[in-house]
Nucleic acid binder design. Structure first.
Lengths: 364, 364
DNA sequence: TTGTAGGCGTTATCAA
DNA sequence: TTGATAACGCCTACAA
């Protein structure tokens, strides 16, 4: 390769290669004090406009990026939120995480995310990491831990429990550093059950998921709604355990043993998997049994048959969580609880009257 | 409430309420030097076992958690990875994120996550946050930015591009701070096309997604495979744009205008949405047209008909990304590129020979 | 309008 | 085996 005349601009006091430029470097290079640089970068009006511009331009040119660890240390603010979810693989958690991250970054916070995978030890470890990082706020979707402990652990940072139908959160009204954001599961399940009853369904099976708290809530709500609707026959309950993603073939037997005409599932994943298993078993949905879900993940709208479900505004809930945290940090207080409206999505999987034979919906 | 005898252990020099206990507090309380505490907590063998235990117990009891900002500052290590994904709402990205986070935390790193939502400005902002946080490594799924710039920006921290069929990444072989993890899309698409051809399919339409690079790659691979398989008729291409989640009804017309008997979709989301739209339009899958996806998200296995697709090991790819970063930090070098095997999942949506009328699969 | 100095909570290098 | 002490990079009184 031929030699060329190269004009290399050697920076005066070139910092170690690989070392990132610091505020001090900038100060030295511009011949001003560190504090001046710091203030100039914050556009502090007590610094002359000329200096501000000069410094800012230099910073720009040299690619200066403030070190947030240093800043966090002195400001006692990490500008970071923690986010604890059971499993981002689940679309509903993904949506929540996306909404949370989006809003957080909009209001100036970055987010450290952790998956618990339903493991208490993992969750404890994650919480530890969050305090080590001195997160300014924490959002938890379906904690396994005792909320009291968590809040105490993070005091004085605010904590918001999302989708927490956890009675402990609601009841104990800890202090104004705890918030909770819930979807109105009761109303959702009631609307769902009413719809099914209107369609002539009578023999209900509830298929439970693994999330203890909200599972219990939905199940209880279903039972209550049935009583209110005047359905006399007892609702059967089948536990799905930790399965619930792919076809839960083994469930079909247990469910069909109850000879139901409506199967209310804990969530959409479970319902979609179940519909697949039912198809394999030769059980027609909705003609023989109606199947419903909860969440309204995107796939519920395109399954065959399309899934009747209760839409939970997961993304919005994530956004609100971030907002609440930011608000709490600013105002030093938080609304203890927020209830989000849910929305019944009636689709093919629950339509048609079982008494009148095959439903009117086509789903070739 | 009756008064009770309460035994309150008043800590000697109680720190400000709300202030977290520091190493200095611990030192004062235990009557030793800060450095001793620091070493004791690290189980430094040059500290007597007795002191180690004493300090560790005190730390435990007082709930001391080291401040990672302070540590990061002095260690010049944040023990943090950055993760940039287009959209965690997408199961395939969620899986990748989950795998990445899981492995990262296993090897001692926490992860700051950012969604770009396909917006270049958002991506730039996120990258800025990552350098501000001095992440020790960065994983990017499908960057919009110029890889060169990104790597320069983060030097000397390693960067790995995941699922990057980005020619710039592959070609330029920047330095040993860049890695790339790709699924073998070419092989996957080829297997897929061959399977379709074997089933007697002849008239192909490729439906493209929005991710420029890998979309082009899959499309080219499909065309090549067809040629190799000796199919003479030209493969038509339809662009799906940014839609692709819910039923892309408008696509159906454009696709069916080509009167295909096989529709190869960019990914599963698109394929599942399309199958729904086809059903609405009265087009039978797979009898009239076969439909295939890419990714093998969980829902592909339970759709009706179940979706033939190419399984991409997203979670594993996420884990490998974290491993590569950790390895690179340790060894100061990185494998430039890693190719992961994909796996053709033949399911109902592509079965049956269109020449022999309705396929043998039932999907009521 | 700008500079000086102290400290945020750790780790690491010296001495003792 | 343990203690002082100086960084790490930044912010903010307080001086000048």
């Amino acid at each position: 390769m031929p030699r060329r005349t190269v004009t290399t601009v050697q920076v005066a006091t070139a910092p170690d290669p690989g070392r990132r430029i610091t505020l001090k470097d900038l100060a030295r290079l511009e011949g001003v004090a560190e504090s001046t640089v710091s203030r100039a970068l914050q556009s502090d009006p007590q610094i002359s406009l000329r200096t501000q511009q000069r410094v800012q331009q230099a910073a720009q040119k040299l690619g200066y990026v403030p070190n947030s660890a240093a800043r966090a240390l002195v400001m006692r603010r990490s500008h970071t939120f923690g986010l604890l979810v059971p499993d981002v693989t689940d679309p509903i958690h993904g949506q929540m995480a996306a909404g949370f991250e989006q809003e957080a970054s909009k209001v100036g916070y970055s987010v450290i995310m952790a998956n618990t995978l339903g493991d208490p030890a993992t969750e404890r470890a994650a919480l530890q990491v969050f305090v080590a990082n001195r997160v300014d706020g924490l959002a938890i979707w379906g904690s396994l831990q005792d909320p009291n402990e968590v809040v105490t652990m993070f005091r004085p940072s605010p904590v918001v429990f999302v989708a927490a139908e956890n009675p402990r959160v609601a009841r104990e009204h800890l202090d104004d550093l705890v918030g909770s954001i819930r979807a109105d599961e009761g109303a959702g399940v009631e609307a769902l059950v009413l719809h099914l009853v209107e369609q002539g369904r009578k023999r209900f099976v509830y298929v439970g998921g693994q999330h203890a708290a909200s599972n219990v809530a939905r199940q209880a709500a279903a039972r209550l709604a049935l009583r209110r609707a005047g359905v006399r026959s007892r609702m059967a309950v089948v536990a799905a355990g930790a399965t619930g993603w792919r076809s839960p073939t083994d469930l079909v037997g247990r469910i069909m043993a109850k000879s139901p005409d409506a199967v209310v599932c804990y969530d959409d994943k479970l319902a979609l998997g179940l519909m697949d298993a039912l198809r394999t078993a030769g059980v027609r949905v909705p003609d023989e049994v109606a199947v419903t879900g909860f969440d309204d993940i995107p796939f519920a709208a395109v399954s065959n048959p399309r899934l009747t479900t209760v839409a939970q505004p997961a993304e919005e809930m994530g956004r609100r969580a971030a907002d609440m945290l930011a608000g709490a940090i600013h105002d030093k207080a938080m609304p203890p609880s927020e209830l989000m409206a849910v929305d019944l999505q009636v689709r093919e999987s629950s339509l048609g009257d079982p008494r009148r034979g095959p439903g009117s919906m086509e789903h070739p």
